[in-house]
């Protein structure tokens, strides 16, 4: 598997660590109403669709950037790769 890193180009998946659903980017506000429920959703309810999915990948053996990879989990086609800090 190859990931087209937005700064470094195509890099082998062995350089990366996978962390699943990119919804982890949307951490709830701790002061919000029902923050407990929101954090439980945030921590435990992840999407795992057969199809297009936004995922987090970490370029641990590279430039240490966290990436948001839009990937079709059925065909393994990668549709988009972005730096997490720019999303």
């Amino acid at each position: 598997m190859l990931i087209d890193h937005p700064l470094l180009g195509l890099r082998d998946s062995s350089e990366f660590i996978y962390m699943g659903d990119a919804k982890l980017l949307n951490r709830p506000n701790w002061k919000s109403q029902n923050s407990m429920t929101k954090f439980i959703d945030y921590g435990y309810l992840r999407k795992n669709p057969a199809g297009v999915h936004k995922e987090l990948w970490y370029h641990e053996q590279g430039d240490r950037s966290w990436l948001v990879v839009t990937r079709n989990t059925v065909t393994h086609e990668i549709l988009k790769v972005e730096l997490a800090r720019e999303t």
Binding site: R11, S14, G62
Partner: peptide, 10 residues
Amino acid sequence: VKRTIMDHLN
């Protein structure tokens, strides 16, 4: 210059 993994090492 590039950073990668070789034989399990950074």
